[in-house]
Amino acid sequence: MNKKAITAIAAVLALPMAAGAGPDDDTLVVNEEIEMVTKAAAPAHIADAVDEIMSGWHFRKDETQALQMDDFENPAMIFVDQALDAWNTVEGTEGKSCASCHDDVEESMKGVRAVYPKWSEAAGEVRTLNMQINDCRENHMGAEKWKYTGGKMSAMEALISVQSRGLPVNVAIDGPAQSAWEKGKEMYYTRTGQLELSCANCHEDNYGNMIRADHLSQGQINGFPVYRLKNTKLNTAHARFKGCVRDTRAETYKPGSADFVALELYVASRGNGLSVEAPSVRN
């Protein structure tokens, strides 16, 4: 390294820490009842890159954090209520609702979110929760599929995810899911677009740092779908991925594409051990 590079590094070290830099040490308990694991030792498959995994909740301001601590305050819960109606509504040519096959959502969907995306033996592919929802609609209900990132879809995803709140994310990365996982990993480290930035540049190398006005988190998806104060709706992981890839001045991938399914599996696996937090609240 030349002398100037050393000077440059010294200059960084000498910089006073900006207020609020780094993740905080707050504790997330929802409804004074569900204790969330928001920091955990990194799972073995990323331990060479990160020591500790952290929920995006730690990187948000106190006011935003508070909204997620009580369901009466959480603006996302209204969509969960709407999805509960949809759960019980008969639609399509088969005269069925979700409840016709799955009864009580609180019973049947407990633990489901925590293991998705997962390999579907029947379909011979890795499926996200949203893909599974549309498969039920098309093939079991004879109903139209929902737009992948749309309001009805993200609400149903939230309703199903709520049943796993507090349980550890635990997606399988081996066996038949392994090749999708490898592909997602490759995508995570590929520097795309005219800015030549990868997910890892921002969310692995720089979490805790400010990028302009944004406090970079680890880009975890244990809290998805996420209610954003910015657009006042639920946002799916694929919509978020799309925005992040676009911001590298790259051609994005399509929500629901095999590419983003692979990336979702990989990103979800980086959060193995964190609690399912959905629906969480972000700015």
Binding site: T190, R191, T192, G193, Q194, E196, K242, V245, R246, D247, T248, R249, A250, E251, T252
Partner: peptide, 14 residues
């Protein structure tokens, strides 16, 4: 020499 070059910040291919 970019990977998936885009049309500025549109998300479309460039």
């Amino acid at each position: 020499g970019f990977i998936r070059p885009g049309d500025a910040y549109t998300g479309d291919a460039g």
